[in-house]
């Protein structure tokens, strides 16, 4: 009702001032549609509140998640968790093999994906001509980033486990995860390389450096901390990834440490999955404890990425 009134007022206001364009002093803010503006301000206030509430839901969800996990699991974060192998008895079970498995996998995957990913990024940013093939590669990378991780698991199962006869080994797992994180690494490394000012390349060329000398001695050193930030973030994604490793058959019950890359293995998220899927409350607590270990690992990785990013921002 009030809105309709406001409209009518507004209309007469417009017409009147068209007839007599002079506006007397003092009358300028005596606006007939004050009511309409008050309504709009109320809507503005309400929506602001609504948007704020919506935003805080994400924040609250994270808090609920953390509180839930810490309160369920903190009591089980004991030396046994790190020193013991998995066991049928929850009271004796630990995740030693999973922690070591995750670290071994990281040790194979990190250098591999760094070399391949940065290599591809350098090619695309520094060498590639703007032609069709380059566009296809670029489009392909962004599409690959959207492929569900379990599909990589299917690829790893067929290609590494069966065709290349690597079996359900640490190596199969590391290769599969490398393929999974490559698109992420390539895209972030490309951004870091693109941020290097053209003037630095020109300066290098002007001193008689070849393309590769320029890339390896000028572009890469300038962008390395940005690249490493991306690599660390990709690694933290890989550390938490479960589905593809379930596919290639990382075991859920490993009571030994892998001796070489061809040994079978388990990783933290798979051990957690194994505990989560058991109905007993004591295993649920164990799962929460495992999650705490996993999250702390990720926190450390992310924190070092942030430190690197800050350093990087200072340098460029």
């Amino acid at each position: 009702m009030s809105n309709v009134n406001a409209n009518l007022n507004m209309k007469t206001n417009v017409n009147k001032s068209k007839e007599e364009p002079t506006v007397g002093a003092k009358s300028i803010f005596v606006d007939a549609n004050r009511k309409q503006i008050a309504t709009r301000r109320r809507i503005d206030w309400l929506l602001r509140l609504l948007f704020l509430v919506a935003t805080s839901i994400g924040v609250l969800a994270l808090m609920a998640l953390l509180i839930d996990i810490v309160s369920n699991g903190i009591a089980r974060v004991q030396p046994e968790l790190f020193n013991n192998f998995p066991s049928r008895r929850a009271s004796e079970a630990g995740m030693k093999s999973a922690i070591v498995g995750s670290l071994y996998m990281l040790a194979i995957m990190a250098p591999l994906s760094f070399l391949l990913g940065v290599g591809a990024a350098i090619y695309l940013e520094e060498y590639a001509k703007k032609n069709r093939l380059t566009r296809i590669i670029q489009l392909n990378i962004s599409t690959l980033a959207g492929v569900p991780s379990i599909v990589y698991g299917i690829l790893g199962l067929t290609l590494f486990v069966r065709e290349l006869h690597l079996g359900r080994s640490l190596l199969s797992g590391a290769f599969t995860m490398t393929l999974l994180v490559l698109p992420i690494i390539i895209v972030s490394a490309q951004e870091a390389i693109r941020a290097v000012p053209k003037a630095r390349r020109d300066a290098s060329f002007a001193l008689g450096a070849t393309k590769w000398q320029t890339v390896s001695r000028s572009v890469l050193p300038s962008s390395i901390s940005g690249i490493l930030t991306g690599v660390i973030l990709a690694m933290s994604r890989a550390i938490g990834e479960t589905a593809p490793l379930v596919m290639i058959g990382a075991l859920t019950f490993v009571a030994f440490l892998p001796n070489g890359p061809m040994d079978s293995f388990t990783v933290m998220p798979i051990q957690i999955y194994n505990w989560v899927s058991r109905p007993q409350a004591s295993f649920q607590e164990l799962a929460a404890a495992g999650i705490i270990v996993l999250l702390v690992t990720l926190l450390i990785m992310n924190f070092s990425a942030i430190l690197l990013r800050n350093k990087y921002n200072k340098h460029i």
Binding site: I28, F29, I37
Partner: peptide, 18 residues
Amino acid sequence: SGTDIYSGSVDVETLRKK
């Protein structure tokens, strides 16, 4: 026109309309 535009009684929306 005699009204302090930073006073609380002025709607910024009305002001910008004028």
